[in-house]
Design a protein around this nucleic acid. Structure first.
Ligand SMILES: [Mn+2]
Ligand SMILES: [Mn+2]
Ligand SMILES: [Zn+2]
Ligand SMILES: [Zn+2]
Lengths: 143, 143
DNA sequence: TGTGTAAATGATAATCCTTTTCATTTAGAG
DNA sequence: CTCTAAATGAAAAGGATTATCATTTACACA
């Protein structure tokens, strides 16, 4: 089940945002597609209903909607990466949203889930990404 | 425990890659730091030991090392995103590495892990990212 | 139903990050 | 030592995202 256009518009208003034609169009475009769309995809679609809309407005609208959790943001493969030396044991990460500190954790086996998904979806799983975002102890105190 | 510089160099050779001074320097820089470093960070560090190294070489080296799982790649917050309409129930994603198809899945509760991590690390967890990468049924056949 | 104002918009430019290209250099097998 | 495929790096190209700022507009309230 997915949120409706109307529901999202109402939520925007409730949070004090103005309901502009541009925002309606962006929301409409997201709601109308079952797929995950990039900002550029959405610009193209929104442009059809509102030819003067600016790409900047697309970005700004998406940021708000994602922050309010009215849309679902997906991390596609692309850029935004950093690296550290490999560890023989598989592990995952917790990242501090304030200072950027990265803490490894291990001992969590995700393969049961992987097997279930493989069976249910027919995907041949190649890898996964499991990361937590939060505030480290330091950053909680300095707040 | 982390892989050693020597171990990584050997693995590179085993996979048929040449062991160039530039690659040594990049490996040395990663091994020397406990942190997750961006390509730009690594360029800066590598540049100290090898002033003529090119940024292109940094990228190329990282790609190889990551593919061989000799270094650990982290998805930082940045760019590379796409969006879809929100769903009232929390869910996660499986993404086809070939065609890009995204399949949602739900019914997996990550909060026990979240609680454990919060207790063990002192982090106040704000969110998480759980995604699987694999090949969808279609793409397995057309291969 | 006007009016005023803070919020929103969009053209443009500025940043970043990453990949491509291609001429030159080099690791390392033989 | 020679030879060659692999690797390199300067430069340019390509993309995506963010910043700026003058202009427009939604909508609270008179
Ligand atoms: Mn790590
Ligand atoms: Mn989704
Ligand atoms: Zn922190
Ligand atoms: Zn596919």
């Amino acid at each position: 089940m997915r949120l409706t256009e109307k529901r999202i518009a109402a939520a925007l208003r409730e949070h004090g945002y103005k309901l502009t034609p541009q925002r309606r169009v962006v929301i409409g475009a997201i709601a109308a597609s079952p797929d995950h769309l990039t900002p550029a995809d959405l610009y193209q679609k929104a442009h059809q209903d509102h030819p003067t809309i600016g790409l900047t407005t697309i970005y700004r609208t998406l940021e708000i909607l994602a922050r309010l959790e009215l849309i679902c943001e997906l991390h596609a493969g692309g850029s935004c990466r950093s690296y550290t030396i490999g560890a023989p044991e598989h592990h995952h990460h917790i990242i501090c949203s304030v200072c950027g500190e990265v803490v490894d954790f291990s001992g969590y086996d995700i393969s049961p889930l992987e097997k279930r998904l493989s069976r249910e979806t027919g995907f041949e799983i190649e890898g996964h990404l499991l990361e937590f975002i939060g505030r480290c102890q330091n950053c909680q105190q300095n707040a």
